[in-house]
Amino acid sequence: MIVGAFKNAHGGATLHHMHQIVQQPYRDQYWLTIKVSLITAGVGSFLGLCIAYAMIREGTPRFLRTILTTFSGVAANFAGIPLAFAFIATLGTIGIATTFIKDHLGYDLYAHGFTIFGQTGVELTYLYFQIPLMILVIAPAIDGLRAEWREAASNLGATSWQFWRYVGIPVLLPSILGAFILLFGNSFSAYATAYGLAGNSVFLIPITIGFYYSGNVVSDPHFAQALAFGMFVVLAVMMLLYVPLQRRSARWMR
């Protein structure tokens, strides 16, 4: 992929693709892909963390945990065209939920700007697998939070919020950061779901790469490889930002 990114159609070496991928419209497409990934990783991490905690905390019936874990295992792996179709059937123009909300609650989602075929729709659909993935990844870390820490904090006068601020979140932070990076990468590289849902209206970089490879408009595999190389660079930058953060948050483990 890296070698191909620096080749032209005739097999000669070139930097032209590198120059091209930072020009419009590709610069905007990268930024859109990064934004969608950041939003779905952020929201997915937060909601997944909250749900996982609610699932694991003392007092939650054990069967709920079993059900939620099983569902998460399935949902985290449910993506691509079937997921896109499921969301279109649910929240599309004449989707079940759209029609129900319109008919029974008197609120027309599409008249108020919502569309499943736009950026928000893609983000919403991505969350369907991002949240369960977060639940699966973070649950063992939450399990590792000892009841004694909470009780000791409470005994020393701390409120629940103070426990989370000074102990709970800092202890979980390395795992949360790791999970966030995983979710970011998961979203950043997703192709089929976005393609099935909004292939012609939301231009994420993986979709553009698909176009250049399949020759839908014009076939240019080397340029597609250059775009893929650009994705690799973005992920490398993310990792460079992540490593010192992770090291700092986990310094108490060394």
Binding site: R146, E148, W149, E151, A152, A153, S154, N155, L156, G157, A158, T159, Y166, V167, V171, W252, M253
Partner: peptide, 16 residues
């Protein structure tokens, strides 16, 4: 958290 009692647990209660 309002009882002003100090407690030492069996083990592993220090904030890591």
């Amino acid at each position: 958290n309002r009882r002003d009692m100090g407690m030492v647990f069996q083990a592993y209660s220090l904030f890591p």
